[in-house]
Structures are given as structure tokens and as C-alpha cells.
Design a protein around this nucleic acid. Structure first.
Length: 118
DNA sequence: CGCTTGACGTACA
DNA sequence: TTGTACGCCAAGC
């Protein structure tokens, strides 16, 4: 195992960490891509979090509890239907604004505020 | 082997 | 103020 191997991928466990955080999001709560990325010490990697969730959707993880920083269901189209994700959240007691965005003031759940430091 | 895209977010012009 | 550019990581073509 050469040192070059480590340089190949800076964060080999990135996906696994994202999944671990998403799996710990309590029902009725939502978090944002940026919060997860920040929790993983990669604040600017919010995009990559979305990629991780893309694979997580097939892993049985509650990816529907992850929304963008505006509370909009950016990934709703990846749930097989635009209203599937919304229905899942509403079923958990999540409320939405008139704009169709989750009321972050009421349901926002930050991993760094409830989970141990990464 | 290299460029583009992707469920984001912030900084800068 | 709005619009554009960049960063981050991984996967697809």
C-alpha cells in the first residue's frame, strides 16, 4: 500500500459518513446538504452529499429527510415522483410553507447539534 | 484519459 | 440586486 494510494481519494468514507448521518435523522425532522457536509468537515462538499444520497436512495435510508438550505425538496424528483418525498415528510408530521418548502424553523435538525463530533 | 454532470452553498463582480 | 464562478467529491460518457 503505497502513499500514493491515500492521495487517490481524500475521503474514501465520505459516502458512508453521509449515510450514517442520514440514518440518524429522527422522523419529523429534516436536515440540509450543507449541514451534513459541514458536519463532515467539508462544508463546500454539499454537492457531493447529494451524490451520496443518490446512492442512498437504494440503500433504504431516509433520504427524504434531506432538503436544500431553503427547505425545498430538491431531490423529490429522485423518489419516483414529485409528491412522494413530500408525502413521506407530511406523514412524519413535517409541515410545509406556502412555497412548498419545509418549515425549517420547526423541523430543522442539525447533525452537529445532536450527533457526536465527527 | 479527460471533460461534464450532479439531490448544494458561498463568494464575488 | 441579480447573475456568474468556484469549490468539493464521485460517477458517467
Amino acid at each position: 500500500m503505497a502513499a500514493e494510494d491515500a492521495a487517490a481519494t481524500p475521503h474514501p468514507d465520505f459516502f458512508d459518513r453521509v449515510w450514517a448521518v442520514v440514518d440518524r435523522i429522527p422522523p419529523g425532522c429534516v436536515t440540509t446538504y450543507g449541514d451534513i457536509a459541514e458536519y463532515l468537515s467539508l462544508r463546500s462538499a454539499a454537492r457531493t452529499v447529494g451524490w451520496a444520497l443518490n446512492a442512498a436512495a437504494a440503500s433504504g435510508l431516509p433520504a427524504h429527510r434531506v432538503v436544500n438550505r431553503f427547505g425545498a425538496l430538491s431531490g423529490s424528483r429522485h423518489f419516483g415522483g414529485p409528491h412522494v418525498m413530500e408525502d413521506l415528510l407530511r406523514n412524519e408530521g413535517v409541515t410545509f410553507d406556502e412555497d412548498g418548502c419545509v418549515r425549517m424553523d420547526r423541523h430543522r435538525w442539525r447533525p452537529m447539534d445532536h450527533l457526536p463530533p465527527a
